[in-house]
């Protein structure tokens, strides 16, 4: 359940932003989470509700954009969607592939006032 710590990280970053950007409440938090980031989306939602209580993001809605894993074969340069780190190149069978996307764990946007 490291999703709990990740949500604590999210709240800390939001509180820091609140100081810098002068807002007092958060309507929506939009995260980008890659499918290779080792994050359970449902655990993230569950944790966020628990962690956000009593903070500036108490009433905030959580939106999560899932980013599909994308990799490139270092040999034949074939780009392919991947579901695991150890997937083989579908064209030449080589591994490991260079991961281009899917490892994201980012706060993308906030709607604040």
């Amino acid at each position: 359940m490291h999703e709990m710590s990740l949500c604590e990280g999210v709240i800390q970053l939001i509180e820091q932003q609140a100081d810098e950007q002068q807002f007092t409440s958060v309507n929506t938090v939009c995260l980008e989470i890659g499918t290779l980031a080792g994050v359970e989306i449902e655990a993230m939602r569950f944790s966020f509700d628990a962690i956000a209580k009593g903070t500036i993001a108490d009433a905030a809605k959580l939106e999560i954009i899932s980013v599909q894993g994308l990799a490139e074969c270092p040999l034949c340069k074939q780009q392919t969607e991947v579901t695991a780190r150890y997937d083989l190149c579908p064209q030449c069978g080589h591994y490991p592939l260079d991961i281009l996307a899917g490892e994201e764990m980012r706060i993308k946007e906030l709607e604040v006032q």
Binding site: L13, N27, K108, V112
Partner: peptide
């Protein structure tokens, strides 16, 4: 309300 692009 305003949108802040954070990308952190």
């Amino acid at each position: 309300a305003r949108i802040l692009r954070i990308e952190q």
